[in-house]
Simulated assay, not measured.
Amino acid sequence: MVPEQVVSTPAAVELMMSLRAKHGELMFHQSGGCCDGSSPMCYPRGEFLVGDSDVLLATLDGTPFYMSKSQFEYWKHTQLILDVVPGRGGMFSLEGPEGVRFLIRSRVFTDEEIAALRSSGRI
C-alpha cells in the first residue's frame, strides 16, 4: 500500500471548511522560506500561480496541496501532516485573521513505505 504524502488533521479540515465558506475554493502551497518561513500557505484557488516547478502532492478535502520540486527533494522521505495551532498565520495566508495558523508536522516514512513510494513512481 502506497502511503499518502500529505494528510490533514480533523482540526485542519474544520478550518478549511470554514475558510472555504468565506473565500470559496482553496489551495495550499508549502512555502520554502522567504516571508513566512516554511509555513503551508492557504490561498483562494487560482490566486497563487503554480507552474512547472511545482508538484501537486495531495488533495485534502478537495483542496490541492502543492510544493516546489526543489523543496520536495528534501521532504520526499517524510509524510507531511497539515495541522492547526493557535497563533497568527502567515500574512498572505487566509487563516491569518482567524487567530490560528496552519502548521506542518512530519514523520519519516518507514523503509517499506519508501519502497512502496518508489515502486509507484511517486518519489
Rank of each mutant, 00 (worst) to 15 (best):
Q79V: 00
T59D: 14
G37H: 05
Q30D: 03
S93F: 03
V108L: 13
L56V: 01
E113G: 06
V85F: 04
I104V: 13
L56I: 00
V50G: 09
C42M: 06
S39P: 02
F65G: 10
K76S: 09
R105C: 06
V55G: 07
R107S: 10
E14Y: 00
L49F: 07
D111S: 11
D52A: 13
E47D: 14
A58F: 14
G99H: 02
G24A: 08
Y43I: 07
E47W: 07
F92M: 10
S18Q: 11
S119I: 06
L15Q: 09
F65K: 03
H23D: 05
L80W: 14
D54T: 07
A115F: 07
G62E: 05
D83E: 00
I81S: 04
R20P: 02
L19A: 07
F72M: 11
C35W: 01
S119M: 00
M41H: 15
R118L: 10
S93E: 10
R105A: 05
C34G: 06
S93Y: 10
F65Y: 15
G24W: 14
E47G: 06
A116P: 03
S38I: 09
V84L: 08
M67E: 02
F109D: 12
R122T: 06
L57D: 08
S120T: 04
V84S: 12
M16T: 04
L49M: 07
S120C: 05
F65H: 07
C34A: 12
